[in-house]
């Protein structure tokens, strides 16, 4: 296991996640459009958008803290991705052997914090409000998700994701054994993906576009690319934790896309909650399910 293989594998994973994330979000727009009875944009549209933004000027200058925000977010999402088990056969020579579920859960909070730093500097009230909403929502989202994660960890007797995957290979996937935990985690997951009804952070009719209000040009492009990678990382985490990981690329794509489709379908037919309604809902229903799931272990 040399440094070269680690780097090579990391780059491959990153590239795959970028391409897959871009295509998924392109398909997201296209499939949503079909629900809405229209043709919709081409599948590559998200890619076009982010590339165009990368070649645009910025209209703002708020100092280095502001520039750092998107970078911190991108770092967080890339690290999350690299520390997650990608394919089961890639156990050797992968950065993910150093990863741990606790580290991942901490890294996932890094994005909102980076956002908060940058937006705080810009001083845009809509941005500040969006960040506040994001942090409030995070409290609600994390509770059921952590309960589900604790359940999964206590079953596998380890906080190492590789062990959780290995346990699932012996006993069958977690979703079938512990459906209540999976449902609890799925609710949070829909929120983490920024899909309705939990898309309170960047609600355009309420807070403009929330934390992104002041970002333009290259920063926005970076945020879009980051979002694609992070979206894929979150899908990967769910697949690893509950669906037993994947052996081949095809299996991985099938599993992650099925999960993605669930968020699309939920997002299409539901409106948006208010912040406290979203938190109320998450703290009540999915958390209860999670607790019952824990008790039934």
């Amino acid at each position: 296991m040399t440094i070269l293989t680690i780097m090579g594998q990391g780059m491959a994973v990153l590239l795959f996640a970028y391409v897959a994330g871009m295509l998924y979000y392109g398909l997201y727009r296209n499939i949503t459009a079909r629900f809405q009875k229209r043709i919709g944009p081409p599948v590559l549209q998200t890619f076009y958008d982010s590339m165009k933004l990368l070649f645009k000027d910025e209209a703002t200058a708020f100092g280095w803290m502001f520039y750092l925000g998107p970078v911190i977010m991108a770092t967080g999402s890339v690290l999350t991705l690299l520390l997650l088990p990608f394919l089961r056969v890639w156990h050797e020579g992968s950065l993910s052997v150093y990863g741990d579920l606790f580290v991942i859960l901490y890294l996932m909070v890094m994005g909102p914090l980076g956002n908060a730093l940058a937006v705080g500097v810009s001083g845009n009230p809509f941005g500040v409000m969006g960040v506040t909403r994001g942090l409030t929502r995070l409290m609600g989202l994390e509770l059921p998700f952590y309960i589900a994660v604790i359940g999964v960890m206590s079953v596998a007797q380890s906080s190492d994701i590789w062990h959780i995957i290995a346990w699932q290979q012996i006993h069958g996937i977690n979703m079938i054994h512990y459906p209540l935990l999976f449902i609890a985690a799925l609710f949070s997951f829909v929120g983490f993906m920024g899909s309705s009804p939990f898309d309170v952070v960047a609600a355009p009719q309420e807070v403009y576009s929330g934390p992104r209000s002041e970002f333009s040009g290259k920063f926005l492009g970076l945020l879009m690319s980051q979002n694609a990678i992070f979206g894929f990382a979150k899908l990967l985490l769910m697949v690893d934790l509950f669906w037993g990981g994947a052996d081949s690329i095809v299996e991985l794509i099938l599993k992650t896309f099925t999960l993605f489709l669930v968020t699309i379908v939920i997002g299409v037919v539901y409106g948006r909650f208010k912040v406290h309604q979203a938190v109320d809902f998450l703290v009540k229903f999915p958390t209860l399910l999670g607790v019952v799931g824990l008790l039934l272990l």
Binding site: P197, V268, R272
Partner: peptide
């Protein structure tokens, strides 16, 4: 009214 709650599917249908 529908887009003010983030139900983007309704304006797409009813404006058509």
């Amino acid at each position: 009214q529908a887009s003010s709650v983030g139900l983007d599917i309704v304006p797409q249908w009813c404006i058509a």
